[in-house]
Amino acid sequence: MKAYSSARDEFEGEAEVFLDANENALGSAASGHFNRYPDPHHKALKERWSALKGVGQERIFFGNGSDEPIDLLIRLFCEPGKDYIITLPPTYGMYKVSASINAVENKLVPLTPDFELDMPALTSAWDEHAKLLFLCSPNNPSGNLLRRQDMHELIKSFPGIVVVDEAYIDFSPEASWIDELEKYPNLVVLQTLSKAWGMAGIRVGVAMGDPYVIAMLEKIKPPYNLSLANQQLALEAMANHEKQKNHVQTLLAEREKLIHALEGVEQVRKIVPSAANFLLVEFDRADELFHFMIERGVIVRNRTRELHCEGCLRVTVGTSAENQRFLTLVNDFYA
């Protein structure tokens, strides 16, 4: 296919008068200068991200959150009614939703009860129509890292593209899989500004992979998939890398305090080891506790109906005061 050619694709450099894109030359109804279309190729973002992550700009794709590259990868590689993706429940729900929207089968190969890869089941689950394998590590909703050696084996043996979703990697003690991109041309790594960077409201995600795959994503994306405001705010966030690192360290310290406090609650049956900014915790009477929290203005995520998550609530690590409020309600509920 021939990609859409925007007005900004046909011009590079400096100009005084822009009469090419049917923009409003009088300015914006809102405050700020948003009457011109944004850079469709995100050149400034890619330059900044490349410097931060040590990844070549030709390997970087920016999308509207991680959800956009997930959707685009399915559209790029899967023929509806013929090909399929593989996901490992319990995991992030948008893989399955995007497959459904694109009329692509989602074959489920569950994680083991301790949220590890079921290697025998996985390696017997695919044929030539398996085009995408999604590995979420640290996993959502469990928070644990998948075994790295198992992931190496899967990337080597899977016949299609292996997508490693690293939304929570900044909270993890392990290195990112972006260090393996040159070794594995069938590897795509997803990251986001929503979590550690604290920019969930602007919806900016990143896919990194083989330059050919990235070029194909650029070809099929909407021309202006990231607004000018979002690009500006993302650049501002990336310029404050020290602030991001400080936030991560604070949240990790709060996570350990939260774990220590929950270990002292008799009705807590299990806390899944976490490499993310949340904990999956198994409670006695979890449903009742969940509604007790809601009635008092504290919202956690009820995961008790997810596979292997019976009786579990997913608790985001908040501020010190927020965490204390949560713990006070836990103790009040079981008093």
Rank of each mutant, 00 (worst) to 15 (best):
S6M: 10
S6E: 13
S6P: 12
S6V: 06
S6N: 05
S6Q: 05
S6A: 14
A7H: 04
A7S: 14
A7T: 11
R8H: 05
R8S: 03
R8I: 13
R8G: 02
R8K: 08
D9I: 03
D9W: 04
D9Q: 02
E10D: 15
E10M: 11
F11I: 07
F11Y: 07
F11G: 00
F11M: 07
F11E: 02
E12A: 14
E12R: 08
G13H: 00
G13Y: 00
G13F: 00
E14A: 12
E14C: 04
E14W: 14
E14N: 13
A15V: 15
E16P: 07
E16S: 14
E16F: 06
V17E: 13
V17C: 05
F18W: 11
F18K: 07
F18N: 13
F18E: 11
L19P: 10
L19C: 03
L19Q: 04
L19A: 07
L19S: 06
L19T: 13
D20R: 11
D20Y: 05
D20Q: 11
A21K: 11
A21V: 06
N22V: 12
N22K: 13
N22I: 09
N22C: 08
N22Y: 09
N22F: 12
N22E: 12
E23S: 14
E23Y: 13
E23H: 14
N24F: 04
N24A: 08
N24M: 09
N24R: 13
N24Q: 07
A25P: 07
A25C: 03
A25E: 14
A25V: 05
L26Y: 06
L26A: 12
L26I: 11
G27L: 04
G27A: 03
S28W: 02
S28P: 03
A29E: 09
A29S: 10
A29C: 06
A30K: 03
A30D: 06
A30L: 08
A30T: 15
S31M: 08
S31I: 09
S31V: 12
G32Q: 00
G32C: 06
H33M: 01
H33T: 00
F34C: 04
F34V: 04
F34S: 05
N35D: 09
N35A: 04
N35V: 06
R36K: 15
Y37V: 08
Y37G: 05
P38V: 14
P38S: 08
P38W: 04
D39P: 02
D39M: 08
P40R: 01
P40M: 02
H41L: 04
H41A: 00
H41T: 05
H42E: 12
H42G: 15
K43G: 12
K43D: 08
